[in-house]
Amino acid sequence: MADDAASPPLTVAIWRGDARKGSLVSYRVPNRPGQTILDVLTWVQRTAEPGLAYRFACRVGMCGSCALTINGLPRWACRTRAEAVARDNRIEIRPLRHFPVIRDLVADVEAFFERWQRAFGRFGPSGPEATDFARIAPDDPDRRAADAAIECIGCGICFAACDTVGANPDYLGPAALNRAWAAHNDSRDDRRAHLRAAVQNGGAHTCHSQGSCRRVCPVGRDLTRSIAGLKRKSLTAALKGKL
């Protein structure tokens, strides 16, 4: 192709291996304008290394399955342009931090979603009547708090960016706690269940408010604020003896 020759090729170092061991393997990839990291991986798999394992589904930033460590930061491969992250024409692609590796760039997300369960990251109706529709005004404070925390697609970027997740194996992590906070603000919800889950060992109070999660979140969720909300509400409930 004509544009292949226009600029020098990219050197793309991709982590290859399994749960036990692995190393970076470099590939020379054409430097096409506008191509994404997902395009780069597809090129490598189709042209240079058919055995390369990586995960993707929607290609347009909706599913969250292509999250990877790209030049040191967690990002979506499909929404990251190669030319925007390349340094001296070099790009390093590793599996997502804090996730066990299955093979190459494919990470095991089971422990990540298991923590959503432990954080009670779901709707828990307060009674039989609460399963029906409720009329909630758009400017209701609870509605607004819930709005700020929804739209998370569970890509794991925040979990990979959080140093506390790496330091404390019990910590539930930003995504799970953010989900619990969203559900807590549903007026039909038995709100105490989320607060009880938030005060378990490794719960909301484990967060040091460093804010890496909200800095990297591709859908702009302020997860630090959600966790702070859980801390505040659970602390107030505990002091009132209503936990």
Partner: peptide
């Protein structure tokens, strides 16, 4: 003693 109680004591 739970981690949460320690957190509480440290804030107090």
């Amino acid at each position: 003693m739970t981690e949460f109680r320690l957190y509480l004591i440290q804030r107090v």
